[in-house]
């Protein structure tokens, strides 16, 4: 059993070695087809990432009335942190607010001198929300509840851009999924057909194998294996090419490369479509006896 398995694997290597130029051309064609897919994923991944980090900043700023002292503010912060959807709260004292202001906008610091020592920036509570609560609707609800609380002067959150952002993220997610699916299917067909053509030249090998009494799996395994290797090598090649393009562009268009699980997905798709192509190509070479 061990020997027959070893031999089946050796068959696969022999197939690849004997047709190395064909194999390399096939791998290159698969790589170029997959590059379209990779670049599509790269662009949508970066878009989504940008939108997500925009969403990351979504929070609520609660400005307190001047008469609220620190002890009361902390009590209020405690209350808010107990609310549904709130991840954390942070109390910003008037002094800290001033320090932040001076650090962030040094040119405008004179304004504070102008207003005189009696003026204080209002104390505030920064509320950060759990991810699933960062939609226009849910932020609005939480903000309204907080604005009704004793000692709260004003509540601010991204009222204008938040609904658009929420919509953009969900539209993009659907779009990526749909386009990705269509691309993946058409890509599988292209790769399958490329591999099928490469395998069609092996009709003699198929015939001889079957005539010398090789079991069907022994005949198929090397072909499917060869298809998988072609698919994986092709998709890996496409990733290398895409990575090269990506790092060439990274200084002009800052972006990130695809995350690990997307890379695995691309390799798996390559393996699958290559194996499928071999299977289809082989079936046309297999002639079952007919009556």
């Amino acid at each position: 059993m061990i020997h027959i398995l070893q031999n089946a694997l050796r068959e696969g290597m022999l197939n690849i070695r004997s047709k190395l130029p064909t194999f390399l051309v096939t791998v290159l064609m698969v790589s170029l087809s997959f590059m379209v897919f990779d670049i599509f994923l790269l662009v949508s991944w970066n878009l989504e990432y940008a939108l997500r980090s925009e969403q990351e900043n979504v929070g609520i700023e609660v400005f307190l009335e001047n008469r609220v002292d620190e002890a009361e503010a902390l009590r209020l912060a405690d209350l808010i942190s107990g609310m549904e959807g709130v991840r954390s709260v942070y109390y910003v004292s008037p002094r800290e607010a001033e320090a932040v202001f001076r650090a962030d906008m040094p040119e405008q610091a004179d304004m504070l001198e102008l207003l005189g020592p009696g003026f204080h920036l209002p104390a505030s509570i920064q509320v950060s929300l759990l991810l699933e609560y960062r939609t226009a609707e849910k932020v609005g609800t939480i903000a309204r509840t907080i604005s009704g609380m004793e000692g709260v002067a004003d509540v601010m959150y991204g009222e204008e851009y938040l609904p658009g952002l929420t919509r953009a993220v969900s539209v993009l997610e659907k779009l990526v999924f749909l386009a990705g699916l269509v691309l993946a299917i058409s890509l599988s067909l292209v790769v399958a057909n490329t591999v099928r053509l490469a395998v069609a030249h092996r009709a003699l090998t198929l015939e001889i194998m079957s005539i010398v009494g090789a079991p069907a799996w022994f005949i198929r395994l090397p072909f499917v294996g060869e298809g998988m290797v072609t698919g994986i090598a092709g998709s890996a090649g496409s990733l290398i090419l895409t990575w090269a393009v990506s790092s060439m562009l990274s200084s002009t268009v800052p972006h990130r490369f695809l995350p690990g699980n997307w890379i695995l997905l691309i390799l798996a798709l390559g393996a699958f479509s290559g194996a499928a192509g071999s299977w289809i190509g082989m079936r046309s070479g297999f002639r079952r006896p007919r009556r």
Partner: peptide, 24 residues
Amino acid sequence: FRLLPERTVFENVALPLQVTGTPP
């Protein structure tokens, strides 16, 4: 003849034994 062109004489002749898992 139908010999496999990319294999040596030895490999062609050995084929029927290899597909049944005969020890090398």
